[in-house]
């Protein structure tokens, strides 16, 4: 038995030397710099493949959309090239129609995923809003999302890396990526006319155009198909258009406060 062990040990020792795959050590270094969650947001099969492509100069230094500036700097250092500035992208949920705001008209008993519920229209009266079954939360690989007590997903400002997994997960296209500098958002996607939208949800955009008139630059906010749309090139993003909004569906500077710590401190003791 001992002899057998020795024979195999010898064989393995030789195999280790002879069959060694020599990997570029920079790949290892770059891989260490990357987040390592294999989220796939870069378009490659995982962090290792991206690292290989970065070393081969096939992918740019800032190809990892999830990492932010730190990762770009670290990758640049590992590759020995100059770092570039990246704009941080954040996911924003464009719906504020939770259980308290949106009218429910049916009970959904099917498979508890949003894509399945979307086939029948879901529980809420509003056919544009959040279905509340958390497919986006399940898609988030960074622990940057959770469902709140009102039945809406919450994106943690401090944790979101802008990988876009939740954007593709949402069957109603309610989540969008926005650059960090953008701070004014319309939190609704309802294209129905005012009275109809109002009937469905108390937080709906009713197309009253008060924000359009409130915006200091003409064309900064426009009404498209009964929904306010912000032109980020023109609109000076400040609080003025939000003041008059009767349903509070256009808000300024509302995303930052929702950090992970803050969110869990707001949960009632029962669930928290």
């Amino acid at each position: 038995m001992g002899g057998l062990g020795l024979t195999f040990a010898g064989f393995l020792a030789i195999a280790d030397k002879k069959l060694r795959v020599v990997e570029d050590p920079t790949v290892e270094k770059v891989l260490d710099a990357l987040p390592g969650t294999n989220c796939g947001a870069c378009g490659y099969a995982g962090c290792h493949q991206l690292a290989e492509k970065m070393v081969g100069r096939e992918a740019p230094v800032d190809a990892c959309p999830a990492g932010g500036q730190e990762v770009v700097d670290a990758v640049a250092a590992a590759l020995g090239v100059e770092s570039v500035k990246t704009a941080r992208q954040l996911a924003v949920l464009h719906c504020r129609g939770g259980n308290a705001e949106a009218v429910r008209r049916a009970t959904y008993r099917g498979e508890p995923t949003c894509t399945a519920a979307n086939m029948t229209g879901g529980e809420k009266s509003c056919l544009y809003g959040c279905l509340g079954l958390g497919e986006c939360v399940a898609a988030c690989a960074f622990g940057a999302m959770d469902m709140d007590e009102n039945g809406l997903p919450v994106i943690f400002y401090d944790k979101c890396v802008g990988c876009g997994a939740c954007v593709t997960a949402c069957p109603r296209n309610l989540i969008e990526l926005h650059p960090e500098e953008q701070k004014l958002f319309v939190y609704c996607k309802n294209h129905d006319k005012g009275p109809l939208a109002k009937k469905d949800c108390t937080a709906a955009c009713i197309g009253c155009t008060l924000c359009v008139r409130g915006c200091e630059v003409k064309g900064g906010i426009t009404m498209q198909n009964n929904l306010a749309v912000i032109d980020y090139e023109l609109c000076p993003q400040d609080e003025t258009p939000t003041v008059k909004c009767p349903t509070k569906c256009i808000l300024f500077d509302d995303e930052q406060k929702m950090t992970k710590e803050y969110f869990y401190s707001t949960l009632s003791k029962k669930t928290g």
Binding site: R105, A106, G110, G121, S125
Partner: peptide, 13 residues
């Protein structure tokens, strides 16, 4: 249900 119970789609309104 719009249709029959096997293949129909349940309506929410």
């Amino acid at each position: 249900i719009n249709g029959g119970p096997m293949m129909g789609i349940t309506q929410s309104t």
